[in-house]
Design a protein around this nucleic acid. Structure first.
Lengths: 415, 415
DNA sequence: AAAATATTGTTAGATTTCTTGACAAACAGA
DNA sequence: TCTGTTTGTCAAGAAATCTAACAATATTTT
C-alpha cells in the first residue's frame, strides 16, 4: 500500500539533502545494534550491492566510517561490519535543566569520554547561563587535553519550547528572561561550529531511542519528571513537535478539575499534582502535620526537595513512598490519555523521581491498565530510563553527531 | 536543520516506489488549490524546469494529467495549469457506518458523479454487509450507464481499527462478527480492481484535508461524533495510526471517573457521556422526567435518536440544546487533552451532531480555551466539517484515486 | 588436501534521471 | 514593432544506479 499523501509532503527526496543514500547509510551504521555489512545495507535499502560498494567506499575514503571485524557466518564469505570512525573527532552534549547543567564529551562513535555536572539556576538568565556552559566546556576540554579545533559540533537541550529554524526558545515558562534569546547563534559564534538546539524532553526521547530503554522503538514517548513534567514524542520514528512546536505538554493535562493551582494558570494540572515541586510540597506538609518520616531529620523543612523524597522512599520511608506512589497514580492517569491517543509501543520514564523504580512505576502501570483501551494498553511497555540522568545529554550528543557526521559525509575530500 | 533520523527510517526513497518524482507531481497537481504549472512544480520540488518538462509530458502522454487553461500573469508568458485528466476513469468511495451505508461515484478529477445512502446494520455481519455494498454499487453504476470496467479502484471506510497490510478489521467493538474478515480481498476479487480499506475517521480527516474544512492543514484532527466518538489524526501531513493501529481513540478517554459505564468496560468514557447513544439516552430520560420538549411528540420514547435531538436543538428546543451543549463541554474537555498532546493547527468536528453548529462548537471551544495550555490553545482552530455527511466517503474517494492514479502513472504506455 | 557450495564484495558497461545553458514561445507595455 | 519578462523545450553531459559477470573468503563435503 502507498502511504497516503507522502509524495505530497516530501519535497523531491533527492533534494531534501544531496546524497540521501549516503546519509541513510551513515545512520543505519550508527543505529543498527550489532553492526551491519555492505550486503545487509543494500538489502535494507533496496539498492544493488554494486551501488552500495560505491557508497560505502566513498564514505571510507572520507574517513567517516571504517571496516570493523568480520562477523562469523554459518557459511560463505563472512560479512565485514562497518562502523563510524570514532577517532574522526569529538562532540559535546549539553543538558541545561532548571537547576542543573551537565555536559558530555563524546567521540564520533558516541562513546562518552568524560562528563561533568554542576548546580545551576536557569532563572539567572541567558548571558550568565551560556557563559557558565562555555566555561564548563572549556574546562572539560582542557582536562582531557583536547583542542576546541578537534570538536565538530555541539548539541544542547533546554527546558522550553524551541523555534528550531531560529534557534531560540519561545515563551518558556521556566526559563524567565530567555525568550527569543539567540542561544544557538551565540554558541555557534563562540565556538565556530554548528550547534543543535533542542527541547530537553525531546532529547531524552532521542537518547533513550538511540542507546537506552527504547532502543529502535519507532513509537516512543519519553516522560521527564523533574521540576516540571514534559514529554518527548517519537512518532513513526520521527520527533513530533506539533503545529507550533508545543506538542507533548503532558504536564498541563487537567487531572483534577478542582486541584491545586498550576503555574500555567489552570488548576489541577498533572504538574501541580505530581511534579517535583508538588512532591516536595507534599513532603513538607506531611512533616508539618507531624507525620513520622525520615525526612524530618534533613534540616530546614523548606529545603526538602523531590530528590530527598525519592531517596527516602528507596530507603523504606513509608510517608515518602506514599507520596511517590500517589504521584505515580496521577502520572498514570495522564499517561492513559496519552496511550489512548498515541498508541505508543514504549513509554520511558525519566527524571530524578523515576529512579525510585517500581515504587513509582507500578502505580503508573496500574492506572494505565485501568483507564485506557485494551487494544493500546495491552501492547505498551512502561519502563524507567536506562541512561538515567544522562538521557537528555546523550540525546544532545546524538544530535551533535548527526550534524557533524552528515556534514562530513557531504564532502568528497578529507578535510 | 536535518530532520532527526529521517535517513534511518526512510528506505532508500527512490525505492519506496519507482518514479517518486512522477508521483509527487501527480499529488501536487491533485491537491494544490488553484492549479499549478510546470515551473511552479519545478520550484516546489527543487528540480530543474527541464526535468519537469520531461516528467509532465510523460504524464500527459500517459493521459494521467492534461493541460488546463493558462492563468493570466502580470507579465511574461502565462503559465499553463495542469490538472488530472478527469475522463481517465472512475472510482467509488464507500462509507460504512454503524447504521448507514453510503456510496460516492467520482471521476478522476474527484468530482462526484452520483451518490446514494441507505440505512444499514453493520452488526448483521460481513457477508450481508458486503453483499449490500456490492449490490448498491452495481445499481449506482447501472443508473449512470457505467460499466464496471470503467472503474479503476474502490475506497472503503469502516468504523473499526484496521490492519492495513492484511486488509481486515481487528477486534472492532462496534462491528461484531467482522473480526479478521477479509474485507479488502473480498472486494478485490469481486470487482477485480485494487481496494483501499481504511478507518472511517481517518478517511474523514483525509476528506476534510483534501476538499474540506482542513484543506492543506498538515496538523489536523478530525473528530467523528456518531454512535461512538472516534478521531482521525493527520500529523506532519501523514495519517497517524500508532504502534498497533489504534491511535486516536479519543472516545475512550476517561472524563468522569465515576461516570456512566461504557461499552469498552471502563466508566466515564467520553463516548458514554457525549456519544450518540448517550445523547439519545439523556433525551429519553428528560422526557420520562416530564420536561417540556419538542421531542415528546416524536413517538415512542425508545426510538428517539441523537439526530432527533440535534434537529430539535436547531429548531430551538431548550432541553435538546442543553443536552447538546453539555455534550460539547465533555468533548471539549477531551479535546483539551488532545490539543495539549498533539498541538494541532485545526480540529474538524464531523458526524451528525456537529451539524448543529455553534450550539455544539461554542462549548467545545470554551472548554479547550479553559483547559489547555495557551501556546497550543491560541493557535488551534475548531470548525465543523464542510463536507458534512460526506467527509468519510470523500476520503474513500481520495484513497481510491491515490491507488488508481499512481498505478497508472507507473506505466509508460497508455493502457 | 582438494573440490563443491555459499555468501560477500567488486568491476565494467548500460541505463535512467537529472542538470546546465542556450533557445523558442507567449504575453504586456512602450 | 521592439523590449522585457516569464514559461516551457532542446541537446549534451553528469551523477547515480542497475545488470551481470567475476573475484574473494569462508564452511562443508569428498
Amino acid at each position: 500500500m502507498l502511504p497516503l499523501m507522502s509524495y505530497f509532503n516530501w519535497a523531491s527526496p533527492h533534494q531534501i539533502v544531496k546524497n540521501l543514500n549516503k546519509h541513510t547509510v551513515v545512520d543505519l551504521i550508527r543505529f543498527t545494534p550489532g553492526g551491519i555489512s555492505r550486503v545487509e545495507l543494500a538489502e535494507r535499502m533496496d539498492l544493488s550491492r554494486a551501488a552500495m560498494t560505491t557508497i560505502v567506499n566513498d564514505l571510507i575514503d572520507g574517513k567517516v566510517i571504517r571496516e570493523a571485524e568480520s562477523r562469523n557466518s554459518q557459511t560463505g564469505r563472512p560479512p565485514i561490519n562497518l562502523e563510524i570512525n570514532p577517532s574522526r573527532g569529538f562532540v559535546a552534549g549539553i543538558d541545561m535543566g532548571a537547576s542543573h547543567l551537565s555536559l558530555l564529551l563524546a567521540n564520533f562513535g558516541a562513546q562518552v569520554i568524560d562528563e561533568v555536572e554542576i548546580p545551576f539556576t536557569v532563572a539567572d538568565g541567558p548571558e550568565t547561563g551560556i557563559a557558565q556552559a562555555n566555561k564548563l566546556l572549556v574546562e572539560l576540554l582542557k582536562k582531557n587535553s583536547l583542542d576546541p579545533g578537534q570538536m565538530s559540533a555541539i548539541g544542547i537541550g533546554v527546558p522550553g519550547p524551541i523555534e528550531s529554524e531560529a534557534g531560540v526558545v519561545f515563551a518558556p515558562p521556566i526559563m524567565p528572561g530567555w525568550n527569543n534569546y539567540p542561544i544557538q547563534a551565540s554558541l555557534e559564534t563562540t565556538w565556530n561550529m554548528p550547534v543543535s538546539l533542542n527541547n530537553d524532553s525531546e532529547l531524552g526521547a532521542i537518547g533513550e531511542w538511540a542507546y537506552g530503554a527504547g532502543r529502535g522503538e519507532n513509537f516512543l514517548a519519553y516522560i521527564k519528571v523533574g521540576t516540571g513534567i514534559g514529554s518527548g514524542l517519537l512518532l513513526n520514528g520521527q520527533i513530533y513537535r506539533g503545529a507550533t512546536g508545543s506538542a507533548g505538554e503532558i504536564g498541563h493535562l487537567t487531572i483534577e478539575e478542582n486541584g491545586p493551582l498550576c503555574e500555567c494558570g489552570n488548576a489541577g494540572c498533572l504538574e501541580a499534582l505530581a511534579g517535583g515541586r508538588a512532591i516536595a510540597r507534599q513532603a513538607q506538609d506531611a512533616i508539618r502535620k507531624g507525620q513520622r518520616t525520615l525526612l524530618s531529620s534533613l534540616g530546614p523543612i523548606e529545603e526538602i526537595t523531590a530528590r530527598d523524597v525519592a531517596s527516602a522512599a528507596r530507603r523504606g520511608d513509608l510517608v515518602s513512598q506514599q507520596i511517590i506512589s500517589r504521584a505515580g497514580n496521577y502520572l498514570g492517569i495522564a499517561l492513559a490519555g496519552l496511550v489512548n491517543l498515541f498508541n505508543p509501543r514504549t513509554i520511558v520514564i525519566g527524571g530524578g523521581v523515576a529512579q525510585v523504580g517500581d515504587l513509582f512505576l507500578q502505580p503508573i502501570r496500574d492506572a494505565v491498565a485501568r483507564r485506557s483501551l485494551q487494544a493500546s494498553a495491552r501492547t505498551v511497555k512502561i519502563n524507567t530510563a536506562i541512561l538515567r540522568r544522562r538521557s537528555s545529554a546523550m540525546g544532545a550528543v546524538v544530535q551533535a553527531l548527526s550534524i557533524a557526521l552528515h556534514q562530513i559525509a557531504e564532502r568528497k575530500e578529507v578535510r
